[in-house]
């Protein structure tokens, strides 16, 4: 339960107005730090909800697939340049971001991850890294501004961030194929 409290603290911290302003002032921080941290906050808070509503998770997410699909939908949604712009200009979308990332992506991710088999996990690793690779290409190669609120140079920075993210996931994935953790622990 300690984790859930840490998650809640992180969640509140991320929503403090100066933190929000700082995090959203740089495109790469907005997408690669603020948004993932909201997911992490939800991930940490998940045990509280799992204990509180065990039946709900058992009924709707028995094999982990619905949860992970929900997670992917939310992630995909927030990868679009337009949604980032809207989060900055329309308060309702900003609030939706604060709710969707922790509660509709972070919590289902934690609940689903243990339930997924290795095939499901591998599919997620591969599709996320491919997806991020495509996003990297989009943001680096685009000759025009994709977000009204951010400059082209920031866009390219974000693109390179995606390259490293995709690479990191790929390396982790390949590592799981070769190293059997149970041999060591």
């Amino acid at each position: 339960m300690k984790q859930a409290i840490y998650g809640l603290v992180l969640y509140i911290f991320l929503m403090l107005p100066p933190v929000v302003t700082l995090a959203e002032s740089v495109m790469a921080i907005h997408m690669h730090m603020q948004m993932p941290l909201f997911v992490v906050a939800g991930f940490l808070m998940a045990p509280f909800f799992q204990k509180r509503f065990p039946n709900f998770f058992a009924k709707w997410n028995s094999n982990g697939v619905p949860g992970i699909i929900l997670f992917m939908i939310i992630v995909l949604y927030w990868l679009l340049p337009r949604t980032m712009d809207e989060a900055l200009t329309i308060p309702a979308v900003e609030i939706f971001k604060f709710i969707s990332l922790p509660f509709l992506a972070g919590i289902p991710l934690r609940d689903s991850w243990k339930k997924l088999g290795s095939l499901g996990k591998n599919i997620i690793y591969v599709s996320l890294s491919v997806l991020f690779g495509v996003m990297a290409w989009l943001y680096i190669a685009s000759p025009t501004q994709l977000c009204n609120n951010y400059l082209i140079v920031e866009q390219k920075t974000l693109g390179w961030g995606f390259v490293f993210l995709a690479l990191a996931i790929m390396i982790y994935f390949i590592q799981t194929l070769f190293i059997d953790k149970s041999e060591y622990e």
Binding site: V26, A28, I29, H32, M33, V153, T157, G161, L165, A168
Partner: peptide, 20 residues
């Protein structure tokens, strides 16, 4: 993984700026 994440947080923005 945590170390790489922190290195990325610290370096991606300034290094891309320095190159671009």
């Amino acid at each position: 993984a945590l170390m790489i994440a922190i290195v990325a947080m610290a370096y991606v923005i300034p290094i891309v700026d320095m190159i671009v």
